[in-house]
């Protein structure tokens, strides 16, 4: 039960943090799906590194994985918004 909530909390924390918000914003800056996904993944990696004080040994692998996935998804949503919402 706590394990599931722990994962859910990690996902929620990432959606409302850099990977979710910055990932979405960066995704909205391009129509290129691949570029958006890469930028989202980079944001996820950077977020994990920044909050671990740039100590690779302090990076939690589950947190890193979730941050990358959320970053890629948010950037893809941002890219979709760009495709749908920009006329030029």
């Amino acid at each position: 039960m706590l394990g599931f909530l722990d994962l859910l909390g990690t996902i929620g924390g990432n959606i409302l943090s850099f990977p979710g918000i910055l990932g979405l914003a960066l995704g909205m800056m391009t129509r290129n799906w691949m570029l958006a996904a890469v930028m989202g993944a980079v944001v996820g990696i950077m977020k994990s590194l920044i909050f671990a004080g740039f100590h690779f040994s302090s990076v939690d692998m589950i947190d890193l994985g979730v941050a990358i996935v959320i970053g890629v998804l948010a950037a893809s949503v941002g890219c979709a918004i760009r495709h749908k919402g920009a006329t030029a």
């Binding site: 706590l2 909530l5 722990d6 859910l8 909390g9 929620g12 924390g13 409302l16 943090s17 977020k47």
Partner: peptide
């Protein structure tokens, strides 16, 4: 810290 706080709030649902 923001990301840990959000996580704690979600876990507090229990």
């Amino acid at each position: 810290e923001w990301q840990h706080k959000v996580k704690a709030k979600i876990i507090a649902v229990k």
